[in-house]
């Protein structure tokens, strides 16, 4: 996984709440057996609408998404994270994420930055007043920032310590766990014999 430290880029305001993973990528686009190529399905139902934020010139090349609360609820499909990444997104900012989506983001290297609701509003106001102006998400200092001078926005975001560390180091979760394989083997030795097996 690529290391993430800080990212600055164009931020797109997605001014909707409860954007579930079916909206991020509908089921009909989940049939690929690779991790790539899902960008075509991203927000598929809305992409034909010329007014949709990613169809506007200023936000077309956005790498940061600023979304309303409860982003990524619903289905566990990691394809939602891949679709955002395949499109070019590096970070998503919201005041609340679906649990599984946030977990998937951490595993896949998409930075899910949880901020206070008023920060989302401030960032929406900023990017709409300054379309295409960069927003910065700094994982090291856990801050989001944008603008300069009196209009500058800077606030903290929350992400758990462990995910932050893994993202900063670009570590493979499976490799970390396999370094504790002795613990797994020891646990298996004491599992009750009444536990079921599939074979």
């Amino acid at each position: 996984m690529e290391k993430i430290t800080t990212h600055s880029g164009v931020a797109a305001p997605l001014k909707r709440s409860n954007v579930d993973t079916d909206q991020i990528i509908p089921a009909v686009y989940l049939k690929r057996v690779t991790r790539s190529g899902f960008e075509d399905g991203l927000f598929a139902a809305w992409r034909n609408d010329p007014e949709f934020v990613l169809n506007q010139d200023a936000y077309r090349d956005a790498t940061i998404l600023i979304a309303g609360p409860d982003f990524g609820t619903g289905s566990s499909r990691e394809h939602a994270v891949w679709a955002l990444q395949n499109y070019g997104f590096k970070a998503v900012i919201s005041s609340r994420f679906g649990d599984i989506f946030r977990g998937n983001s951490g595993k896949s290297g998409l930075l899910a930055a949880e901020v206070d609701e008023k920060v989302v509003q401030a960032l929406w106001d900023f990017v709409e007043a300054n379309p295409g102006a960069p927003v910065t998400v700094d994982l090291e200092s856990r801050t989001v920032s944008a603008g300069e001078g009196v209009d500058r926005i800077e606030d903290s975001f929350s992400i758990d310590d462990y995910t932050r560390w893994r993202l900063l180091e670009g570590l493979d979760d499976v490799a970390i766990t396999l370094s504790h394989e002795d613990d797994i083997t020891a646990y298996e030795a004491k599992r009750p014999s009444f536990k079921p097996a599939t074979i």
């Binding site: 990691e78 394809h79 998937n104 595993k107 499976v174 766990t177 396999l178 797994i184």
Partner: peptide, 21 residues
């Protein structure tokens, strides 16, 4: 019992365990 993403599916396949807060 809970749903997981594909990275976690790989993790469980390889390790029969999962890191969870």
């Amino acid at each position: 019992a809970f749903g997981i993403g594909t990275s976690e599916v790989e993790h469980v396949l390889a390790t029969q365990s999962l890191s969870q807060a």
